[in-house]
Amino acid sequence: MRVLGIETSCDETGVAVYDSEQGLMAHALHSQVDAHAVYGGVVPEIASRDHIRKLSPLVDQALAESGSAAGQIDGVAYTAGPGLMGALLVGASFGRSLAWAWDVPAVGVHHMEGHLLAPLLESPAPDFPFLALLVSGGHSMLVAVHGLGRYQTLGQSIDDAAGEAFDKTAKLLGLPYPGGPALAKLAEDGDPGHFNFPRPLTRRPGLDFSFSGLKTAVAYALRDSEERPGLKADMARDFEDAVVETLTLKCRRALKQTGLDRLVVAGGVGANQRLRDRLGEMAREQSVDLHFPRLEFCTDNGAMIAFAGYCRLQGGESLTPEISARARWPLDELLPPAA
């Protein structure tokens, strides 16, 4: 089975072709960072219009790179939610129309399921069940993954997600958009231990996340500190350490609670090198099998949607001709394919 995947949930247009025998055959990605940088964040209308401009050429590119003619595509998968409604509708309309024109089934993929399954594109791929840490600009979640569509949310953001806190803190420090990578780069020049930032919700039981207070702590420290060389780099380093230590502690706690010995990390913050290093240390200490997707598949991409769509289509799932998308879509509402 060969599946075309389309991702347009926010500010990146991704298209990929996945084949059940040959694996990932092609993936193309267009980032809208430059279009939104002048505004300091994603502007939904600009995002939707840019998806409209870029989607068709990217589909042509992915088909050409994979050597696929329209008649060789057996199904179309697109991100149906959650995300920006206008952006989702661009991909849903385009994907569903292609499927209708090609007379193949279409399936709407949950964006978070795409991230959860992205590490399965790697070799070796993790076996079910596993614990997943999903950390991105909009989500921080710990999920017990027992199989396709069998997800148990153990903990999640109650306010700012980790990636959102990175971006907001970067803005406080005067760093350019997108803030997360810029802050991580600045932190490389910082010395740890100058600021006693909190590790939110680590002194109480549970697996939920809260990073809004950490961002506020940085704002107060910045207000009350005297300007000196290296101040912002030290502040970035201590902020990053606080986030990484919090995520690591919660993973350790979740592994103990579930008894699982496999940990999968996905989402944009999963590209953070300090987080990768710290989780790697923890995994070695506890004999945990740790899996990351390659860096290019941590952020939003068409490959994860093509693969998740393949899994759903292979299970016999497909959509009726109506075009549907959901800006909000709880992960726990997903079910395994009927087949």
Score class of each variant (00 low, 15 high):
Ala283His: 13
Leu331Met: 13
Val243Met: 02
Arg326Met: 09
Ala266Asn: 05
Glu322Gly: 11
Gly280Cys: 08
Asp289Thr: 05
Leu249Gly: 09
Arg252Val: 00
Arg312Ala: 12
Cys251Gln: 09
Glu322Thr: 14
Ala327Lys: 11
Val244Trp: 00
Ala266Lys: 01
Glu245Gly: 01
Val243Asp: 00
Asp300Tyr: 03
Gly268Pro: 11
Val265Cys: 05
Leu255Asp: 11
Gly259Thr: 15
Asp261Arg: 15
Asp300Ser: 07
Gln286Ile: 00
Asp261Pro: 00
Pro293Gly: 03
Pro293Glu: 02
Glu296Asn: 13
Thr320His: 13
Met282Lys: 05
Val243Cys: 02
Arg284Trp: 04
Arg252Trp: 06
Gly302Lys: 00
Leu275Asp: 07
Thr258Ala: 12
Met304Val: 06
Ser318Asp: 07
Leu279Ala: 06
Val244Glu: 00
Leu331Ala: 04
Arg326Tyr: 14
Ser324Trp: 01
Ala308Asn: 04
Gln286Arg: 13
Arg253Glu: 14
Phe239Arg: 03
Cys311Arg: 14
Gly309Lys: 02
Gly316Met: 10
Arg312His: 09
Thr248Cys: 15
Ser287Phe: 04
Lys250Tyr: 08
Gly268Leu: 13
Val243Pro: 03
Gly259Asp: 11
Leu290Gln: 05
Pro321Val: 13
Phe292Met: 05
Glu296Ile: 00
Ser287Met: 06
Phe292Val: 02
Arg328Tyr: 07
Ala271Glu: 07
Thr258Trp: 04
Ala327Pro: 06
Val243Ala: 02
Ala254Thr: 07
Glu281Met: 13
Gly259His: 12
Ala306Glu: 04
Gln257Cys: 04
Leu290Thr: 01
Met304Cys: 09
Val288His: 08
His291Asp: 03
Thr248Met: 10
Arg262Thr: 15
Lys256Gly: 09
Thr258Ile: 09
Thr299Tyr: 00
Cys311Leu: 15
Ser318Pro: 02
Glu281Asn: 11
Ala271Lys: 05
Ala308Ser: 12
Asn301Ala: 05
Asp332Phe: 04
Arg284Lys: 15
Asp241Ser: 01
Pro321Tyr: 12
Arg328Cys: 03
Glu240Met: 10
Arg274Glu: 11
Ile323Thr: 11
Ala308Asp: 01
Gln314Pro: 00
Asp277Ala: 15
Asp300Met: 04
Gly259Lys: 13
Arg294Cys: 05
Thr320Ala: 15
Phe292Asn: 01
Arg294Leu: 09
Asp300Ala: 08
Arg312Gln: 13
Pro293Val: 07
Gln286Trp: 15
Arg253Ala: 10
Glu285Ala: 15
Leu260Gly: 11
Lys250Trp: 08
Phe292Cys: 03
Ala327Ile: 00
Ala303Ser: 07
Cys251Val: 12
Gln257Asn: 12
Arg294Lys: 09
Ala327Asn: 02
Asp277Tyr: 11
Asp241Cys: 03
Tyr310Cys: 06
Val269Ala: 08
Lys250Ile: 12
Glu285Arg: 12
Gly302Met: 01
Arg328Ile: 05
Pro293Arg: 05
Pro293Trp: 01
Glu240Thr: 06
Lys250Asn: 09
Leu263Thr: 03
Thr320Met: 12
Ser324Gly: 01
Arg328Ser: 12
Phe292Gln: 01
Phe239Ala: 02
Gly267Asp: 07
Glu317Gln: 13
